[in-house]
Design a protein around this nucleic acid. Structure first.
Lengths: 190, 190
DNA sequence: CAGCTGCATTAATCTAGATTAAGAATTCTA
DNA sequence: TAGAATTCTTAATCTAGATTAATGCAGCTG
């Protein structure tokens, strides 16, 4: 029995019978192997039993931004589990590793099982929040203030109207002066 | 029936009887009212039914860093729910608001109920991850590279040993050159 | 062993955004 | 409605960290 699934069964959420339809491969992976590429569909989840794995993005300039390291006992996933959704993160092995790999369709199957158990709201809400935080970290590490501001306007158009500029600046991680400068730059470019 | 609890019952996780011991206040709050102060124990959860709320930190220089805005339908909490844990975030109202406020001891009670239902692992793991991401965002917004590096060493001492410098730089959101400079600065101060 | 490739360090510039300061516009509030 | 208090903007500096570039070190590999 593989450890992630064992936990679920122990939780009493799923019975061994329900689990049996889901396959989890335990695989040895060599250092340097790329497990997942951003932009490609079929994002998976990786549970690290041994070794060290990293998840990262690559920006337009080709620069890598590491979102997380995962060593023994950690789980890596970008939680992009809608069908055919492109992965957000690259994942590769920093050390030779022993991983449990959960394929996307199995994750979707798992989610469906959860739904029949009526557990989903809690878990899906939390995963949603994780996705939001994940995106924010990536933007803070890789994007300049203008890009982050444009993204904010697009993501929270209603909040922009209801909040003073200085608070938006404070959310973006810059001074009000910097945001003001950027806004006038945007107007000039109209 | 208040909406958050209604969701839980609808989920079939808790019965109306189990819910009955938990009190949730629905409260009108005036613009500007501070709901929670960082450092003080008894962090609560706030569900926004109407209005607009923000969660933020204040750094040593007195500068505010907004972690999130929450409008209708959003939940605000820093997920610091160990008994007597000091809150990490300030929370206040940007607009007159109608909130459901869940007190810390009720959250702890809720968690205990979840445990008896054996749902906890999933949810607690996800909340843990949220706490980690939250801390990272706050540090990215408010702390300089040296501080973030020191925090990384403290939080992941094992990873430091197993990963090349350039990857730590990439995780911190700076160039390898900047991290190298900081390290030599640390040595000079010994 | 020599040559190649990736990593770390140092140093010289450069720049996005911080800081400081001051004026104009807007919104409380008495 | 006047005065006070915020907020926004603009402009002049300043600085942390980016960029560029050069050097020294491993580790591999043929």
């Amino acid at each position: 029995m593989k450890s992630i699934l064992k936990k679920l069964i122990t939780n009493g959420i799923l019975s061994p019978h329900e689990i049996s339809s889901i396959q989890i491969k335990e695989t040895k992976i060599n250092k340097g192997t790329i497990l997942q590429r951003a932009g490609e569909p079929g994002g998976r989840a990786f549970y690290v039993k041994e070794g060290l794995v990293r998840a990262y993005t690559i920006d337009e300039k080709g620069k890598e931004h590491i979102f997380m390291f995962a060593s023994e006992g950690w789980m890596v996933s970008d939680f992009e589990w809608r069908e055919n959704a492109p992965a957000l993160l690259f994942v590769d092995c920093i050390e030779d590793s022993l991983l449990e790999i959960i394929e996307q369709n199995d994750i979707i199957k798992l989610n469906r099982l959860f739904e029949t158990k009526q557990v989903p709201n809690q878990i899906n809400q939390l995963m949603n929040r994780i996705r939001v935080l994940q995106k924010r970290i990536i933007l803070l590490m890789s994007a300049d203030t203008l890009t982050r501001y444009e993204d904010f306007i697009e993501t929270y158009p209603d909040i922009v109207q209801r909040v003073p500029q200085r608070m938006i600046a404070s959310y973006l991680g810059v001074t009000p002066e910097a945001l003001s400068k950027i806004k006038s730059k945007m107007l000039k470019k109209h």
